[in-house]
Design a protein around this nucleic acid. Structure first.
Length: 800
RNA sequence: GCGGGUAUGGUGAAAUUGGCAAACACGCUAGAUUCAGGUUCUAGUGUCGCAAGACUUGCAGGUUCAAGUCCUGUUACCCGCACCA
């Protein structure tokens, strides 16, 4: 018999909705569990099977927690500001608000069809005024605390779309939207001073439970390095050239200096540099190079020597040439380096190309052939000669530098300050007013939210300014401080803004006087378990940890880390084993699967297909196997009626409950499902079962396939909802078998298998083994060197 | 280049963390059943071999009574970062 999944699933979805089964209550006396999944961007394409996988993991955990008696907060929302919506708004000439509402509706109905146990009363939408009011509020608090600043920077600009693009949208030097070439353009950029929190973000990792690779990715992203800043005098000028190095110990090997082409020292000494024209020309060439070319042509070093000025090594006193080259970036360190070609790959390449001296200061390699990066005995280095330990040499050098007043120890981070603006319409307006007299003035808190004005045209303006710049009513305003004429900032916040604090709003989504009430924050925080994609563990997670730490510092939130635990799901690949994409035509539509097999089958299959954290290809035929499993489970109801249970089956039940209980905690959903399948197979073999056992079975199945489980629960005569009934317990004693099969090995090779009592001790089992027909002749006449017994598993007899 | 990961039957994958390799599922083969069917059931299915048995976790070594698991080297692929001084 096939069960009527379509009616059963809509029936229970309706009941859950009516009874508000999954509503989180603010009952502070109960133990809480806050499970968080990354809220989706509601694209026009609708949901993807990847979304289902991303939510199914914590869906199972949350459902189990509810059955275990926890007060569970398992919310969902929509991260709805962003470029794709704005682009289709332009394309179809529809307001992004309308598109967003339509897409959210589509997503919501699809999520409900999958039977997810989200609390639908707490849905948030980052584009709603009630929400972005608080995004702006946090921004103003950061402004107030000196974490917001403006600077000019080179940005990726698409001349055809007239739009400034993020690095992510301009990969390969081509515009993501129109595929034309991107140029570098100088623009005023808003920054958040995230680097101020670099150390706190690093230290915080020590006390959270993130997957190890999540942690290392964050550590690498922050990219802390220790080294020294050293001042080199510039001969012929009064200036000093400050450099950053992680290897101050190699300073005696510095044979030249390199500065970024944009380095200000060039313009400052225009008259002293005899080949200034040549340098100017080189700079132009560099500016024309896209980010793409600059990184692709890694091997091919270019540069120009600054004739007329030279650097003086403050330790050795040696005079060395200064080059401008684009392998040194203005954005890292001081934009200037001392080059030690003997012990650095890049400096070595450059020195070889330009015929500069290479001086060995660390023994161990052959610098004629290649630079030597490793450790070794120091030579040609005056007071450092003889040092063999890098750490000691660095410490010694730093102390000498400090003594002489020509340098200090210091740290640098790869992480840069967060460029926090976009020249776009569909984002949170930056609540700042520019006044000629008063400078940058924040919009007063009581005037928040600063609403996005309603416009009909979302095309960016000439030169890439925001569409908001074209609206005179919006731009022209009065200065809140002096009352004079002023102009509003027209840039909006980037997509990452709204998602940096959304987990706080879920805690108190309808609060209109604060972002969330203090007592509720105290109860629900931190998020107990956060699951999402690996692609978000650097940007999104670091940004939101930064915001959270800031909110902690100003006393808004009660803990300094937002997420206690972080896991990640793997991708679902197309049936061809490739990443799903429209252009490859290998995208699986979850709706079709629900239509054909039901939501329970979709959920079970997605969790069964492989390890939750790994990428696994989709297989239509394997989906059928999961359908068969649920069909057989449903049919069991008829088979089992009124029959007893065998002791063997009873033990199998306890084992299965134990396995499913622990597997869920480790996100080993695939083996949890496999063990339930094995149990069903066993029941069919035996053909006996009581209703109590069947109830236990549907209870552990419930988090995976909740609709069929509720239906069977009701058919078994229960009137309460299974979703809020207790999680079954198991008896450890009944998980053990009375007899066990022991493998008998001779010299590590399996020669026999014997059934023995589970209580037998080592000596008994070995005696039984030696007496066995197959083993006795193999031991006879030989010297037994060793006898090993692994309880309940095997005996290994080593003979000579 | 740097960092992280993966490699197991025809396929997706398991393996209590050093103790029976291939659980569970797909597919395939044979038979039964109901058909118009893509349904269901039973048996078989790592490779070689009639068999006893031997071999088998990308490749080459090593440690161990015992290695998919630990160590050394090597190859291929995937992901992240990328001239970070």
């Amino acid at each position: 018999m096939k069960y009527d999944y379509s009616n059963i699933e809509s029936k229970w979805q309706k009941i859950w909705e009516e009874k508000e089964t999954f509503k989180a209550v603010d009952d502070f006396s109960k133990p809480k569990f806050y499970g968080l999944v990354e809220f989706p961007y509601p694209s026009g394409a609708g949901m993807h099977v990847g979304h289902i996988k991303a939510y199914s993991g914590l869906e199972v955990v949350s459902r189990k927690r509810r059955m275990e008696g926890y007060n569970v907060l398992f919310p969902i929302g929509f991260d709805a500001f962003g470029l794709p919506t704005e682009n289709s708004a332009i394309k179809f000439n529809v307001h992004p608000r309308q598109l967003t509402d339509k897409n959210i509706e589509k997503f919501s109905s699809q999520l409900k069809r999958a039977g997810f146990s989200f609390d639908w009363d707490r849905v948030i939408d980052t584009t709603e005024e009630d929400y972005y009011k608080w995004t702006q509020w946090i921004f103003l608090k950061m402004f107030e605390n000196g974490l917001v600043f403006r600077d000019t920077a080179l940005v990726n600009y698409c001349p055809s779309c007239k739009v400034v693009l993020s690095n992510e949208d301009s990969q390969g030097g081509k515009c993501d939207i129109c595929h034309s070439d991107i140029v570098q353009k100088s623009k005023v950029v808003w920054y958040l001073r995230i680097t101020e929190y670099a150390d706190k973000l690093l230290e915080g990792l020590e006390k959270v439970d993130y997957l190890p690779n999540v942690k290392t990715q964050q550590v690498n992203w922050i990219g802390k390095s220790r080294g020294a800043f050293v001042d080199f005098a510039v001969k012929g000028t009064d200036e000093k050239l400050k450099i950053y190095t992680t290897r101050p110990d190699t300073i005696f090997g510095a044979t030249f200096m390199v500065i970024a082409p944009e380095h200000p020292i060039i313009d400052n000494n225009k008259d002293k540099i005899s080949n200034f024209d040549e340098i100017e020309k080189y700079r132009e060439e560099c500016a024309k190079k896209s980010e793409f070319e600059r990184t692709q042509l890694v091997k091919d070093k270019t540069g120009v020597c600054l004739n007329g000025i030279t650097g003086i090594n403050p330790i050795s006193g040696k005079e060395i040439p200064i080059y401008a080259a684009d392998y040194v970036m203005m954005g890292y360190g001081t934009g200037a380096i001392m080059a030690v070609p003997a012990h650095d790959d890049r400096d070595y390449d450059f020195a070889k190309k330009f015929g500069i001296d290479i001086i060995e200061v660390i023994k161990g390699g052959d610098i004629e052939k290649e630079p030597y990066i490793g450790e070794g005995k120091m030579v040609n280095s005056d007071f450092l000669n003889g040092y063999t330990n890098k750490k000691d040499a660095i410490a010694k050098m730093i102390s000498v530098l400090e003594e002489k007043g020509v340098g200090t120890g210091g740290v640098q981070y790869k992480m840069k300050d967060w460029a926090f603006n976009r020249q776009r319409y569909w984002g949170e307006p930056i609540p700042i007013i520019h006044c000629d007299k008063c400078g940058m003035v924040p919009v007063p808190y009581e005037e928040l939210p600063l609403k996005l004005p309603n416009v009909n045209n979302f095309e960016p303006g000439e030169g890439g300014e925001s569409p908001l710049a074209k609206i005179d009513d919006y731009v022209n305003c009065k200065c809140p401080v002096c009352g004079g004429d002023a102009k509003r900032e027209t840039d909006t916040m980037p997509q990452w803004a709204g998602s940096s604090w959304y987990f706080l709003r879920y805690i108190d989504p309808h609060n209109d006087s604060f972002l969330a009430a203090e007592d509720k924050l105290k109860y629900w925080l931190p998020v107990d378990w956060y699951n999402g994609g690996m692609e978000h563990v650097t940007r999104h997670m670091i940004y939101s940890r930064f915001w959270h730490k800031f909110l902690y510092d100003i006393g808004v939130v009660p803990c300094d880390e937002p997420y206690a635990k972080r896991t990640a799901q793997g991708l679902i690949l197309g049936p061809d084993g490739e990443k799903m994409s429209k252009s490859k035509g290998n995208v699986v539509d979850p709706n079709q699967v629900v239509d054909e097999f039901g939501a329970d089958v979709l959920r079970v299959y997605i969790l069964f297909m492989g390890d939750y954290g790994s990428a696994t290809p989709w297989s239509d035929s394997s989906v059928k196997g999961c359908k068969r499993f649920l069909d057989r489970t449903f049919d069991l109801f008829e088979i089992a009626k009124g029959k007893g249970v065998t002791p063997e089956l009873e033990s199998a039940f306890h084992k299965t409950v134990k396995k499913v209980t622990s597997d869920i905690e480790e996100m080993k959903f695939n083996t949890a499902i496999a063990s339930m399948m094995a149990l069903i197979n066993k029941i069919y073999e035996v053909g006996h079962l009581t209703t109590d056992e069947l109830k236990t079975f549907v209870s552990i199945l419930c988090p995976f396939a909740p609709h069929i489980s509720e239906e069977l629960w009701q058919m078994l005569g229960e009137t309460e909802l299974l979703s809020v009934s207790p999680w079954p317990t198991y008896d450890e004693a009944k998980c053990k078998d009375s007899t066990v099969e022991i493998v008998i090995q001779i010299n590590g090779k399996i020669r026999d298998r014997l059934e023995v009592s589970a209580e037998a001790n080592a000596a008994e089992v070995i005696a039984i083994a030696k007496a066995s027909e197959k083993i006795a002749p193999l031991v006879e006449g030989k010297t037994v060197v060793k006898e090993l017994y692994v309880p309940g598993k095997l005996v290994n007899i080593v003979v000579k």
